[in-house]
Design a protein around this nucleic acid. Structure first.
Length: 291
DNA sequence: ACCGCACCCTGAGCGC
DNA sequence: TGCGCTCAGGGTGCGG
């Protein structure tokens, strides 16, 4: 679901609701693989703590705590982080909403998929984390504790350079799109922005990495940075489940050029956008513009 | 090093 | 209406 822009927009909008507020109590759902730190331990570690800031590392949100520990959250495919004031209109599925009375649709009522519920000493709005598919993750790190998932991440996609891509692509036989999705090389790019960046850089997703020239690496890096920055400006892509922390939609889906536009005309040349499978992911590109 | 696959889940959309 | 199927912004771990 969320890639770098969606995680970054979430970070910016949820930070004011989290930072500096002492956590009185954390409620969770039952233990599941969603919890890399078990619920009971998580509750103990967070009770009475205050988040100092909310940072983003790749697609992870990391909040340093006032005791030196860190709370780490990954949104997975369907993760949503939002304040209690958010409208349930977009947070819940259409079927779930249909079961609600009009009054109940106004504010969000935690449901079975609401895995984290932060309550604060100030009695202000609670903060919820909801994840229907539970592909997201939450964990607590002790002061100074490292975590392999974070340690392995490559350069942040907002700061990727042609040089980084050039070095990573040499002698690699894999499709350039697969390389972009590899978080250990560049972190933050997912299926939407890989396709969008490759279209803007006029590169075919299946091109072997080592066949990408130096100049093309520069163009690709620039395309990655600009498409991500533009998406952040517009609030991210709300194509399926993503909503911002206030429950509203992002706007970047209106600016997509290829992703989920199979059969529709390329906005550059009019050729029908083609959809193939690369690395087990649906992949959209223009057979004419992208070589 | 890299590919394909199974797996972790739930829900929407579609054809029949 | 309902069933069965496919698909989905994520990532890990395995065998080959």
């Amino acid at each position: 679901m969320p890639e770098l822009p969606e995680v970054e927009v979430t970070r910016r909008r949820i930070a004011p609701l989290l930072v500096g507020r002492r956590i009185r109590r954390l409620e969770t759902t039952a233990p599941s693989y969603f919890f890399l730190t078990q619920p009971a331990r998580l509750k103990r570690r967070l009770k009475g703590r205050t988040m100092l800031r909310v940072e983003r590392i790749g697609k992870y949100l990391v909040a340093p705590l006032d005791d030196g520990g860190r709370l780490v959250i990954h949104l997975g495919m369907t993760g949503q982080l939002f304040g209690a004031g958010a409208s349930s209109l977009r947070l819940l599925s259409a079927t779930a909403r249909a079961a609600l009375t009009p009054e109940a649709q106004q504010g969000f009522r935690p449901d079975a998929h609401t895995h984290l519920r932060f309550h604060f000493d100030d009695d202000g709005p609670a903060v919820f984390m909801r994840d229907v598919r539970k592909f997201g993750k939450v964990l607590w790190l002790a002061p100074g504790e490292a975590h392999p998932r974070l340690e392995r991440l490559g350069v942040d996609a907002l700061r990727v350079t042609g040089e980084v891509l050039f070095r990573a692509t040499r002698k690699r036989d894999r499709a350039v799109k697969n390389l972009l999705l590899d978080q250990t090389i560049v972190s933050g790019i997912g299926n939407i922005y890989a396709d969008e960046a490759l279209h803007r850089a006029k590169l075919r997703p299946t091109r072997r990495a080592r066949r990408v020239t130096r100049a093309e690496c520069e163009e690709l890096a620039a395309a990655i940075r600009s498409v991500l920055e533009r998406s952040i400006e517009t609030g991210g892509s709300s194509i399926r489940d993503y909503v911002t922390p206030d429950g509203s939609d992002g706007g970047f889906q209106e600016e997509r050029r290829v992703y989920a536009r199979k059969g529709e005309p390329c906005l550059t040349c009019g050729t029908a956008v083609r959809c193939i499978v690369v690395g087990q992911r649906s992949t959209h590109y223009c057979t004419s513009c992208q070589r």
